Amino acid sequence: MSILVPILLAVLALAARPGHGAALVPTDNFLTESIKRLSELLETKVSCDKMNVTNIFAGNKEDDDMEVLCKATTIAWEGRSCHMHLEGIYVNLLALLRRQSPEHQAPCPVAAGNTTSLNAFFMDLRKVLQRLVKDRSLK
């Protein structure tokens, strides 16, 4: 019991030091993990790959990166029953949105219109995330 007191005091002293809070996970980790999961999804062939989803990458090129990620979060949420990795991608994209963009709160509305296969959505989303990592557009 006598050893517990010094250990407890040391832990309390370390916890009380200013400026040493928990470190945030770097944004690149969310992006690279999502890219990895998307690559795994593209290698896996399942029946729902041909499932149609709204094509958020077609037409409107005026959306900024956060708007695209917010819409992608909505698509990932809707398709998560197809692939278990989509839940991980959803969580990563949601974390990016919360950290980077207070005005974009998932789920973002996705207007009905052009559709694409879930597999094509994976490829397009992977390209966007790879560009963000390369350009270091998100900090």
Results as ranks from 00 to 15, higher is better:
M1R: 10
I3M: 07
L4W: 13
L4E: 14
V5M: 06
V5Y: 12
P6F: 04
L8Q: 01
L8D: 01
L9I: 09
A10L: 10
V11S: 10
L12G: 11
L12D: 08
A13W: 08
A15W: 14
A16L: 11
P18N: 05
P18Q: 05
P18A: 04
G19I: 05
A23P: 00
A23G: 05
L24V: 02
V25T: 12
T27D: 12
D28N: 08
N29V: 11
N29I: 06
F30E: 03
F30T: 02
F30P: 07
L31M: 03
T32L: 07
E33K: 08
E33D: 09
S34I: 01
R37W: 04
L38Y: 00
E43L: 12
E43W: 07
E43G: 11
T44F: 06
V46F: 08
V46E: 09
D49F: 00
D49N: 12
D49C: 01
D49M: 04
D49K: 02
M51K: 09
N52I: 05
T54R: 13
T54Y: 10
T54H: 12
N55V: 00
G59T: 04
G59M: 06
N60E: 11
K61C: 00
E62T: 06
E62P: 00
E62D: 11
E62W: 06
E62R: 04
D63C: 05
D63E: 11
D64F: 04
D64G: 14
L69M: 12
L69Q: 04
C70G: 13
C70E: 04
K71Y: 04
I75M: 05
A76P: 02
W77S: 12
E78R: 14
G79I: 00
C82T: 01
H83Q: 10
Y90K: 08
V91K: 12
N92E: 03
L93D: 04
L93C: 06
L94N: 15
A95D: 14
A95K: 10
L97M: 10
R98C: 06
R99C: 00
R99I: 07
S101D: 15
P102Q: 07
E103C: 01
E103A: 14
H104K: 12
Q105V: 13
A106L: 06
A106P: 15
P107S: 15
C108I: 03
C108G: 03
C108L: 03
P109Y: 14
P109L: 11
P109W: 07
A111R: 11
A112P: 05
A112Q: 11
A112K: 09
A112Y: 08
G113L: 06
N114Q: 15
S117E: 11
L118F: 01
L118S: 02
L118K: 00
A120G: 04
A120M: 11
A120N: 12
F121Q: 03
M123K: 15
M123C: 07
D124E: 14
D124A: 12
R126I: 03
V128L: 15
L129D: 09
R131P: 00
D135F: 02
R136D: 14
R136Q: 15
L138P: 03
L138A: 03
